[in-house]
Amino acid sequence: MSVIQILIYVAALVFLVTNITRFVRMASTPIHLRWELYPVAHDVKRYKYGGSFLEEADWYTKKLHKSKLGEMRVMLPEILLMKGVWEYNRSLWLWSFLFHIGLYLLSGLIIVLLLGGIIIGPNIFYGYDSLSIIGQIIYNLSYAMLIAGCAIGTIGTLGLIIKRMSDHEMSVSSTFGSFFNLYFIAAIFISGLVFFFSGNPVEKLITFYYSLITFQAMPNLGAAFAVHAVISGLFLLYLPFTHMTHFFMKYFTYHKVRWEDSPNVRGSKLEKRIQEQLSYPVSWSAPHIGADGKKNWADIATEEGENGKE
């Protein structure tokens, strides 16, 4: 087994385990106070103008309906088209859009190539014409996704680098890390382009994925492939420890904060969780709180007198 294969196995494992751990940890933080921002997408009736169920004088007598379809209608253009950037930061949009499309195409390519590894496998050695219809579709799709993803991503990433350098607001808040991430991603796209033009890229990729799936040794696929694979593997290792995990954390920022408007109903599970959290001990030090590390939130909030003392 080659170093590249080991790197990819380790990177994939770290990527999955770290991201799942981060997701689970975020999901298990306590229920927070409501902090929604309107418009809220699951209120389909009022989303257009930003209204809420609180516009009804008897809202507390009605069951809140949350439309998953309504949320999808907002999230899909946000994820696929960068709608928020389009609306509020137009000069950044083109570069951000191309950058993300490049990443989506390469991410999608991983799935297509996994399928290719399973469906086509060693048949790739017998030539394109020997492939089944599905095999040919996978082959062509891989070819298109690789060149499109790398080309579009390269343009987007370079655009973002230039924008980050030239825009005052972006440049003053940029850190070494901000540029490092962009250069890292640019390296993936550019090395992908070089690999593409090095000849027979799809054959090499399917061969590689087949070897990964079957845990077999891989043949020498050339220097261009090795460079691209190593950079991509290192990026997979690095990504879970950066802000770029926003690609899945957006679930929380939108669904669990911005759109989280569930009212607290007496006797509900939500109420039980709140009561549990109100019993957490408090150790803030300011005198007016009167905390001692033993008193809990409920004790302090219901105490009479100045500074929380009798």
Partner: peptide, 12 residues
């Protein structure tokens, strides 16, 4: 314990 009220949105 000290900031359950806003911990999740703050961490995000």
């Amino acid at each position: 314990e000290n900031n359950w009220t806003f911990l999740q949105p703050l961490l995000l």
